[in-house]
Design a protein around this nucleic acid. Structure first.
Lengths: 148, 148
DNA sequence: TCAATTTAAATTGTATCAAATCTAATATTC
DNA sequence: GAATATTAGATTTGATACAATTTAAATTGA
């Protein structure tokens, strides 16, 4: 069943391909709202917990300010978030959803319904196993990263 | 054990994060040879089978000419490949490894040894299961892509 | 056969990514 | 408490991704 003769390269290629193909499926549907997949990810994080620091968003998505700063400025330009430099610590910027930004949640949910249905646990029970292994790999990789 | 309450979004985020973190680990080591990860992927494909069409490389990596043409021109600029327009079908270009391009294989293998060791099946038997599920997901996604 | 269609690459334009550097603000340490 | 170090974001730069368009060549079908 499983491939017992594989390399880190093969694993990386599987991850790289699967990742991009799935993101493409999101992107196709998000186009209608003129949202990119990374922009949607950031909004998703904020729908869970509003007012996060740029730093905190970066930790959740494994992205740094080099990616997030221009992305957040675009979201601000579309009036979906506000970027506020904090008084307590002037180095930090926290991100607040605007009303239009909050409203997007239900719109994207509707838009992405077919995708959620196709990749539901009910349709594909093995996906929850896959997700579990992925999170485990993520954990291993973070500790590997700090050691090497 | 597994997460029975997850969404396509969570799966995509796991894939997206794991993919980028693993690629980063490759990239760190490839820097020594001034190679990027996608460039290394293309070379890996050619080490398996030399003389492939741009098209064919694209199929293996799920990349199109928009990404591959400039990448291949860079590899050609570094004298690792030659790009030859075919006489039989002038629309196609096949990619041949040069001698320096072939020589890179052993150099990268040496460079990436620590990574291959850390992500070997012996170290992590569950990775072969993960890779298996990823390939299955890839297959599902390709057919889903053609239907939607 | 030859006009219409399809195909393979190349090109163009927008948006990431990530390493490296920079700036300003806060923490630390002697 | 002033010099040093650290931290959070912003900026810069180079290299993808990928959709859309273009171009040239090959294929098809009436």
């Amino acid at each position: 069943m499983a491939d017992y003769n594989f390399s880190a390269l093969q694993l990386s290629l599987s991850l790289y391909s699967a990742s991009r193909l799935l993101i493409q499926q999101f992107q196709i549907r998000l186009n209608e709202l003129h949202l990119t997949y990374p922009q949607y990810l950031v909004l998703s994080i904020l729908w869970e917990e509003d007012g996060l620091l740029v730093n905190k968003i970066g930790q959740k998505l494994h992205l740094d300010s080099g990616t997030l700063t221009p992305l957040l400025k675009k979201l601000e330009g579309m009036n979906y978030v506000k970027r506020n430099r904090n008084e307590a610590d002037e180095r930090t910027v926290s991100i607040q959803l605007t009303y239009p930004g909050k409203s997007l949640q239900s719109k994207t949910a509707e838009l992405l319904k077919p995708l959620e249905a196709a990749f539901s646990v009910i349709e594909n029970p093995e996906l929850s196993t896959l997700n579990h292994y992925l999170k485990s790999l993520l954990g291993n990789m973070e500790s590997f990263k700090n050691k090497n």
